[in-house]
Design a protein around this nucleic acid. Structure first.
Lengths: 155, 155
DNA sequence: CTCGCTGGTTTGATTTCCGAACCGAATGAG
DNA sequence: CTCATTCGGTTCGGAAATCAAACCAGCGAG
């Protein structure tokens, strides 16, 4: 990670979810990541795809680059102009976006406007543990406070 | 779903991710869901766990109940008082929260403050297609605009 | 009847967000 | 080369969301 997040400055419990949301939870941030992942790298493309006001978009892009989620570098096709690209950290946000996509399709849409497909069928994904191969929802999952977490919880 | 989301009112492209964020993307909303999922059902518990200001918390709880993510009903232990509980829609948000947790642990924390465990090992999950069993990241995923989506894209 | 706790609401100041206008640098048309 | 246009923002003034702190009503305990 670029500079480790200051968990001790979180308002509530010291939790990586809260930390993530401090970084990518502001309005438009995740939509910017979505848009870049769709291959739209230029300011104007991202503005159109998200619908964000230009000043907000500029602020978000700056913050996301600062946070190491995006990288700003010259476009190969038109040098002199720069574009925004996902870093590895940014690519690693895609599962979260997909979870939101699946939730929106399931709970907000009569008929989903977009779906993901692979191998000629619609993707209906679930979260599976890499280590034991079991779907996470299937077994009771325990939330364990690490020593670092205990230190942060003030004790 | 309760009342289908108005995709046509979205600023950018008609996308279930954007729709989801309209519903649960405001500040504190996802942390409220996290807190309730941890078994904290009372206003004061949720306030403490999230750190949200009380008026914002009240507004979010109202909106989440309205959106069908939470349900407000009397607490069995102290009748007369009410508490907040996850609906099925709310429980279905947990994968998204877990994705954010994993991202935060990986990219923001030197040492993660909390981790998920099951079967005596740490959960390291990936997104796997229920239909074909393949990890979604492994194969190229195509984003398909449905007829409904085409209608919304204005044509 | 009073006291303290719970679950909010109200208030007034601060911050964020917004749409629209503006601007300099790069690009493209003639 | 010149001029107009596009691109990638920044600036502006107003509207909306957020915040901390104070306030308040209902309830149960004493």
């Amino acid at each position: 990670m670029a500079t480790p997040f200051r968990f001790e400055e979180l308002a509530g419990r010291p939790c990586p979810i809260a930390a993530s949301l401090e970084v990518v939870g502001e309005r438009w941030s995740l939509l910017v990541v979505r848009e870049v992942s769709l291959g739209n790298h230029r300011f104007s493309e991202i503005a159109r795809g998200t619908g964000a006001p230009r000043d907000r978009l500029a602020a978000r892009l700056r913050a996301l680059v600062e946070a190491g989620v995006l990288e700003r570098r010259p476009l190969s096709e038109s040098p002199g102009r720069a574009g925004y690209f996902l870093t590895e950290s940014g690519r690693d946000l895609l599962p979260a976006l997909q979870a939101l996509l699946q939730w929106g399709n399931r709970w907000l849409a009569d008929e989903p406007p977009v779906v993901l497909e692979h191998h000629d069928h619609r993707v209906d994904a679930e979260w599976v543990c890499r280590t034991c191969g079991e779907p996470v929802a299937a077994s009771p999952v325990e939330r364990v406070l690490t020593p670092a977490g205990r230190r942060l919880s003030g004790r």
